[in-house]
Design a protein around this nucleic acid. Structure first.
Lengths: 82, 82
DNA sequence: TGTTAATATACGCTCTGGCGTAAAAGGAAT
DNA sequence: ATTCCTTTTACGCCAGAGCGTATATTAACA
């Protein structure tokens, strides 16, 4: 699954969804990143001031990565083709 | 084009490349985002402390978006299929 | 090689992110 | 309802991001 994220809120929502899908709590992520639970909460709630190092640390733990893509270039999925 | 960005440096490089491809200077981006040139420079050089609002503002101007993707899920390109 | 554009750095300032810590509020069960 | 887990919020603190401004440094290129 790949989700578009153009706003801090969209990033936060995406990370929260993945975290829950993986059965992890904010505390789990907190421990594995050495970030405060409050920081994870803030990020998931779309705080625009969150530093990129913080987001990337959480994404690392969730085994996620960013892809920088041109806006509007729709991502063709295999389902769209076959 | 879609580039993977797992580190602040990779994000900075991707944004710099796209900016130049579009024939824009840091000053151009600076004016359109109301961010200082110094901030753009810092971001492009991979400052891990850059805030997500700053990165997203620049990406907006460059008509870029993030995609949150599972690490290791290779992005199949049409060329790979046909 | 000298001029101009572009990028990188620096200084003082204000604001706030994340820290440590703690408490409050929500949620999901029995 | 109460217990337990999870998430949110709060407070004082320090470090640093981005601001305004200005000056280096580097890059192009006549």
């Amino acid at each position: 699954m790949t989700t578009i994220a153009r706003t801090p809120a969209q990033i936060g929502n995406a990370l929260r969804r993945v975290r829950k899908d993986k059965g992890l709590t904010q505390k789990d992520v907190s421990e594995r990143t050495n970030l405060r639970i409050a920081t994870i909460s803030s990020l998931e709630n779309g705080d625009a001031g969150t530093q990129i190092r913080t987001i990337l640390a959480v994404m690392m733990v969730l085994q996620l990565e960013f892809r920088v893509a041109e806006r509007g270039s729709d991502q063709p999925s295999l389902e769209d083709i076959f």
